[in-house]
Amino acid sequence: MAIATKPRTAAQARERASSSFELWTWYFMRISGLLLVFLVLGHFTIVHLIGGGIDRVDFAFVSGRWSNPLWQVWDWLMLFLGLLHGTNGMKTIINEYVHRAGARVALKSTLYVLTLIFILLGTAVILTFDPNKGHSTVLQSLGLLK
């Protein structure tokens, strides 16, 4: 069963990729995956497991964390890499299982729009969060806060 266990090497990925973008996503999935292992398992251990887990998670807890740029960058990287990694994986699944072109395009378009909105929303909230004011300043600028 040599064929069945043959790995997809980087060389093979280069040969088979239908476009340079597809090849780029092949590398992206592996590099972002490697980073996410540490980011996500670290986040899960710190926030969900030790120190009382989700029982002590409230506004004050998150606000305290986001007053430190390390956790802001950490959380933003998880948001950005996690969404792109997840969306690209979902794109592959849709491409493989949804055979009708119309449905495939509709599903992928919905996925991409949703991902874009969540990246913009998450980025705005995390990077403009002001612990002294107790909200994200961009939301105030946009008139979304009363």
Binding site: F59, S136, L139
Partner: peptide
């Protein structure tokens, strides 16, 4: 849910 943090407590 975490985005709600941006809207205050």
């Amino acid at each position: 849910d975490t985005a709600l943090v941006g809207f205050g407590p």
